[in-house]
């Protein structure tokens, strides 16, 4: 496995951003973890100097146990054929970040979706309104503390006959004898215990 260009990128990143944790995962994959206030300079550095001109994806992960949201950027370099994955963690209680739509205009749409699904507030993006959901007045639905089964049961008519529906995670765990972690138990439907 030839990791020459990946290592070259990692070295360049480390030289400029000393606090960045760079990991070359495999060929064509570099993962960078960074403090959230360094993200805008880092992204413009990656775009202008490291040739990562294409923002392929922009997403969010809910780390409920750490009380953090993780924003994930995926950048692609057409010159070197390398994907750069940039991760940063922000506070979950008061999720705020700055917009990066001045770097990539398409980031605006991703930010609107993240705002709707996770409730992250992007400073500088003035289109954070209603996006896909209409008239949503509950918790943002992709947060892990949003109980979708409870919500669906309360708001939509449930036809009887689905009592044998099983939680996929529990069924797999029961078959393979795995332990379900404590934090996950809170969000699963333990129908067989009720």
């Amino acid at each position: 496995m030839n990791l020459e260009k990946e290592n070259k990128f990692a070295k360049q990143i480390n030289e400029t951003f000393h606090s960045a944790v760079v990991k070359v995962q495999r060929e064509r994959r570099i993962i960078v973890e960074l403090r959230s206030d360094l993200i805008p300079p880092f992204l413009s550095f990656a775009k202008e100097y490291l040739s990562f001109i294409h923002m392929a994806h922009y997403s969010c992960v809910d780390w409920l146990e750490e009380n953090k949201f993780e924003l994930v950027f995926m950048l692609w370099s057409y010159e070197e054929d390398v994907m750069l994955i940039v991760k940063t963690k922000i506070d979950r209680e008061k999720p705020e970040f700055v917009t990066i739509k001045h770097l990539w205009p398409q980031a605006e749409t991703y930010e609107r979706e993240i705002h709707e699904m996770y409730g992250v507030d992007f400073k500088g993006n003035d289109r954070l309104g209603e996006f896909i959901l209409e008239d949503w007045d509950d918790l943002p639905p992709m947060r892990r503390d949003f109980d979708t089964v409870k919500y669906a049961g309360e708001h939509y008519f449930t036809r009887p006959g689905r009592e044998d529906a099983q939680d996929v995670r529990e069924t797999i765990a029961r078959h393979s004898g795995e332990e379900i972690p404590d934090f996950a138990k809170k969000y699963s439907i333990r129908r067989d215990e009720e």
Partner: peptide, 8 residues
């Protein structure tokens, strides 16, 4: 059946 956004 457990979706937050579809009628059942």
């Amino acid at each position: 059946w457990d979706s937050y956004n579809t009628i059942k």
